[in-house]
Amino acid sequence: MPINYYIFLALALFTIGVIGVLTRRNAIIIFMCIELMLNAANLLLVAFSKLHTATSNIATAGSDAQIFVFFIMIVAAAEVSVGLAIIVMMYRNTHSVDVNFLNRLKN
């Protein structure tokens, strides 16, 4: 399969993620959109890694990108746990998950 397909898919995912973050006010949805963007990046990393392995004559070429992906997944998992905890705290305090209520630091 040509690499272009992967790139377009990743771009589409990423754009959906960005638009979601910009337009939605629900913290959980924003959160999921961020995950979407991370996964877009992951997809690209995997795709290019594969491409690299195929075109190179070194056996291990491109494997570092795969490792990166694992890192990102682990960090994302950690982030999710912290992020969800924050959102839970936020809900307890404001009885809402609307981020526009989170402007109290402004004043």
Binding site: V18, L22, T23, V99, N103
Partner: peptide, 14 residues
């Protein structure tokens, strides 16, 4: 510029 609106920050970032 610091409106306190998360989405405004996001927009700026993008």
């Amino acid at each position: 510029l610091q409106t306190g609106q998360v989405s405004a920050y996001m927009l700026m970032m993008v």
